[in-house]
Amino acid sequence: MTFRLRLSGQTRRRALRQYLLARAVNRGRALRPVADRTAQITKGDLLVFVTQRNERIRLPYFLEYYRKMGVAHFLFVDNDSSDGSRDYLADQPDVSLWQCKGSYKAARFGMDWIDRLLMRYGHGHWCLTVDPDEFLVYPHCDTRPLRALTDWLDRSGRVSFPAMLLDMYPHGGIEEQVYAEGDDPLQIARYFDAGSYTISKNDYFGNLWIQGGPRARAFFRDNPVAAPALNKIPLVKWHWRYAYVSSTHMLLPHQLNRVYDEDGGERISGCLLHAKFISTFTEKAAEELSRGQHYSNSQEYRAYHAGLAQGTQLWCPQSQEFRDWRQLDDLGLMSRGGWV
């Protein structure tokens, strides 16, 4: 006779969250500090958390972009880089760096490490968790610093801010324009899809599941279910009891995922411009494919590899050229909500 334990969703989610936290502490023991400047962090500082591997060429622009936004400190996990990015990061005055030689996959694609750092250093701060190829755009970002946004979120009683991943791509082949260190990758990959997205709601975690965009139409046109998720909640006023469940797509407790309005109104949201598809991509894809360290057996990278080998272009005549946040707001990809 089988005995099945019936637990409420609430209990199961709590158990999962506690498991994730325990796991983060356990896996986090593998983190070795290279440069620990966390003593510089003061109350109320904005923090950025990043996992990176061999992204040396992207880092200067990345750091510059977020410094201008008003980020006070960066916390990096370096997963066994070999291109000098570790030394580069260790020399930066506002970066704390940990290295980890363990498997990216076994650490839930780096989320265990990030959860550990968030738990230790993020508590009480507004924390932004991004990749080196993701650039946050939020309402009024051309005139108001990130601090203005977090102050407003604080006043409105919000603790999480959604920013959908917006895949950017160049005109023509990905290889055509070579990316050089320090360049703005969004000058090369400056096109995006305005309206090719699909949305469904995940009732268990309470988050929206957004898919689509250029990757779905170029690489997953016959298997949309497998297309990568684009919904993200990268900016959170962290509490040590919170945990990211799957990348930054969803969080626990699940109330943090309720960043959308169901009564017809619009809440505030931003976009993460994803400048993945530039000249560095092909090499990266080949390497990642051989390492097999990515989600669901690197299915995504295999699809890219096959697609790009056939000369697939992401650009199409209906692609839009990126201008500024107002354009994204008008298109309904993000919303300023009630932030006048």
């Binding site: 959908m164 959308y260 017809g264 619009e266 309904g332 919303s335």
Partner: peptide
Amino acid sequence: GRPGLHMQSRFP
């Protein structure tokens, strides 16, 4: 909100 819009922060 804007009519006919389904997005990350509006899902009526």
